[in-house]
Amino acid sequence: MTQTDRRLERAIIGLLERRAATSSICPSDAARAVYDEDDDGWRALMEPARRAAWRLVAQGRVEVTQGGRPVTEDEARGPLRIRRAGW
C-alpha cells in the first residue's frame, strides 16, 4: 500500500468522523482532501479513493452505497457514496 493509499483511507475516516453519524461522503471528497493543489489534479485520485473505500469496507469500517443502500464492489456501477458502517 502506498502513502497516498493510506492518506486516502485516513481522509475517508476523518471526513466521516466530522459529519453527522448518518451522513455520507463522495470519493471525490477524499480525493480533494488528499490532493494539495488548487487545480483539477484531484481527479487522478478518484479511482484510488474508490479502492481505499473498498479496503475500508473489507475492514468493516464503512459501507459503500448507491441510491441509499449498501452495495458490493461487484454490484457498484457509477456514482458511489461512502458512509459509516452500520447505518
Rank of each mutant, 00 (worst) to 15 (best):
residue 47 E to W: 13
residue 85 A to R: 10
residue 56 L to I: 04
residue 43 R to A: 13
residue 43 R to T: 11
residue 87 W to R: 14
residue 40 D to N: 07
residue 26 C to G: 10
residue 10 R to C: 09
residue 8 L to V: 12
residue 63 E to F: 03
residue 47 E to P: 10
residue 65 T to Q: 12
residue 33 A to N: 07
residue 22 T to M: 11
residue 59 Q to A: 07
residue 23 S to H: 15
residue 34 V to W: 03
residue 17 E to F: 12
residue 23 S to P: 09
residue 68 G to P: 01
residue 18 R to L: 11
residue 48 P to N: 06
residue 63 E to N: 08
residue 14 G to M: 01
residue 85 A to E: 13
residue 73 E to P: 00
residue 1 M to C: 04
residue 81 R to H: 15
residue 37 E to W: 13
residue 33 A to F: 06
residue 45 L to R: 02
residue 65 T to L: 10
residue 5 D to V: 01
residue 75 E to M: 08
residue 25 I to M: 05
residue 7 R to W: 07
residue 86 G to C: 01
residue 17 E to I: 07
residue 48 P to K: 00
residue 58 A to P: 00
residue 17 E to W: 12
residue 82 I to L: 12
residue 55 R to G: 00
residue 80 L to G: 04
residue 58 A to I: 02
residue 1 M to Q: 08
residue 78 G to Y: 05
residue 84 R to E: 02
residue 38 D to T: 14
residue 19 R to C: 02
residue 2 T to L: 11
residue 48 P to G: 00
residue 84 R to V: 07
residue 40 D to Q: 12
residue 83 R to H: 08
residue 26 C to E: 15
residue 25 I to R: 01
residue 3 Q to H: 08
residue 13 I to E: 08
residue 16 L to Y: 04
residue 86 G to A: 05
residue 60 G to W: 03
residue 12 I to V: 12
residue 20 A to E: 14
residue 16 L to E: 00
residue 30 A to Y: 02
residue 62 V to K: 01
residue 61 R to P: 10
residue 15 L to M: 09
residue 30 A to T: 05
residue 82 I to C: 03
residue 72 T to S: 14
residue 58 A to M: 00
residue 68 G to V: 04
residue 81 R to E: 13
residue 23 S to L: 06
residue 75 E to V: 04
residue 38 D to V: 08
residue 64 V to A: 04
residue 19 R to Q: 11
residue 50 R to H: 10
residue 78 G to K: 07
residue 75 E to W: 03
residue 46 M to E: 13
residue 87 W to C: 10
residue 10 R to E: 14
residue 33 A to Y: 05
residue 37 E to R: 15
residue 15 L to K: 06
residue 54 W to Y: 08
residue 62 V to W: 04
residue 49 A to N: 02
residue 82 I to F: 01
residue 76 A to I: 02
residue 33 A to Q: 12
residue 55 R to S: 07
residue 79 P to A: 13
residue 12 I to F: 03
residue 60 G to N: 08
residue 58 A to T: 02
residue 26 C to H: 14
residue 47 E to K: 10
residue 9 E to Q: 14
residue 52 A to Q: 07
residue 24 S to C: 11
residue 68 G to E: 10
residue 24 S to T: 12
residue 81 R to L: 12
residue 62 V to R: 00
residue 78 G to H: 03
residue 28 S to D: 06
residue 7 R to I: 04
residue 80 L to N: 09
residue 34 V to F: 06
residue 49 A to S: 14
residue 5 D to S: 15
residue 4 T to K: 03
residue 56 L to P: 01
residue 2 T to E: 13
residue 27 P to R: 00
residue 42 W to T: 05
residue 40 D to E: 13
residue 81 R to Y: 11
residue 29 D to I: 00
residue 11 A to T: 02
residue 7 R to N: 10
residue 6 R to E: 12
residue 9 E to A: 11
residue 56 L to E: 00
residue 48 P to C: 06
residue 4 T to V: 15
residue 30 A to M: 05
residue 18 R to I: 04
residue 19 R to V: 08
residue 83 R to Y: 06
residue 73 E to Y: 09
residue 43 R to C: 03
residue 3 Q to E: 14
residue 13 I to P: 02
residue 85 A to L: 04
residue 72 T to C: 05
residue 71 V to C: 09
residue 79 P to D: 12
residue 71 V to L: 07
residue 38 D to F: 09
residue 32 R to A: 09
residue 38 D to N: 14
residue 78 G to T: 02
residue 55 R to V: 12
residue 46 M to W: 06
residue 66 Q to A: 14
residue 69 R to A: 10
residue 41 G to H: 05
residue 40 D to W: 14
residue 31 A to D: 02
residue 11 A to D: 10
residue 15 L to H: 05
residue 44 A to W: 05
residue 41 G to C: 11
